[in-house]
């Protein structure tokens, strides 16, 4: 990555999240740089999703700070953080099942548009222009994710693998600065996982920055530039896939005896 000092897109400083007595995340720091794929791994209950929720503003961290693009976003409302260019997918798919695929992607463009309720009611200029632009962008994203043929299908009528991809498409629509993928390969078969791997590579080549929570080691080891390992809420290792693979602490905590 050269000698130049790069500014972190995301900088987490000593994040701790407590739920009354339970410490879900404890003193975790991490940095994510532009056009990087960073993996967050750890056994079940290690606090990965909680960390995601702290970063995206669904929870407010009990202690610590989150900086996004140099700006302190700790405790900011979730929708405001999204508007700053951070989008995510969910571990258990959260699509809008009452809407068509294309509308799901259009919701993803909410922060990219501005027209208000009154403008839409009266069908005014800005609303019409934005609708046209949004529609074009949504179709572009659907083509990119190979979902174009399904654009008028309701989200819940899509097969599982496509639902996962639609969720990524929705997160991708507004040209986010950072995408957080929460177990994108969960429940996928070999073939689907391979497709997903290539797809995420494609996203990186297009200049996206991605944080990935994943259990599928093949995917993580093949994709990530750097990996953070969590166990019982604490960070036990950080480094390239090779470093992490060899780290004895990681091996005992998570990967088992033999990798």
């Amino acid at each position: 990555m050269g000698e130049t000092v790069r500014e972190a897109v995301l900088h987490c400083e000593n994040i701790t999240q407590r739920f009354s007595g339970l410490v879900a995340v404890s003193d975790v720091s991490m940095d994510v740089y532009t056009n990087e794929i960073v993996g967050v791994i750890g056994p079940n209950g290690a606090g990965k999703t909680t960390l995601f929720n702290d970063i995206t503003g669904i929870y407010k961290p009990t202690e610590g700070k989150v900086f996004f693009g140099g700006e302190d976003i700790t405790g900011m409302a979730c929708h405001k953080i999204t508007a700053k260019g951070m989008t995510r997918t969910f571990q258990n798919i959260r699509l809008f099942n009452n809407m068509m695929a294309i509308d799901n992607v259009l919701v993803g463009l909410h922060t990219a548009t501005k027209s208000g309720i009154a403008e839409s009611m009266l069908h005014l200029g800005r609303h019409r222009r934005e609708e046209k632009e949004s529609l074009a962008r949504a179709e572009e994203v659907l083509k990119l994710t190979d979902l174009y043929d399904y654009r008028y299908h309701y989200a819940d009528s899509l097969p599982y693998g496509l639902q996962r991809r639609l969720e990524i498409a929705r997160a991708l629509a507004c040209h986010p600065k950072l995408i957080l993928l929460d177990e994108p390969a969960a429940g996928m078969n070999e073939q689907e996982t391979t497709d997903l791997l290539q797809f995420i590579r494609k996203l990186k080549s297009m200049g996206n920055t991605i944080i990935l929570i994943e259990h599928d080691m093949r995917l993580v080891m093949n994709l990530c530039d750097r990996i953070y390992v969590l166990d019982h809420g604490t960070r036990i290792a950080e480094g390239t896939p090779d470093e992490v693979r060899k780290n004895p602490q990681v091996i005992t905590a998570y990967l088992g005896e033999e990798v």
Binding site: I58, H79, T82, R94, F96, V107, C174
Partner: peptide
């Protein structure tokens, strides 16, 4: 409609 579909996802989409 997205709020009806999933309020948490709606929030995460910036609504």
């Amino acid at each position: 409609k997205s709020i009806k579909g999933d309020p948490i996802a709606a929030r995460a989409m910036g609504i």
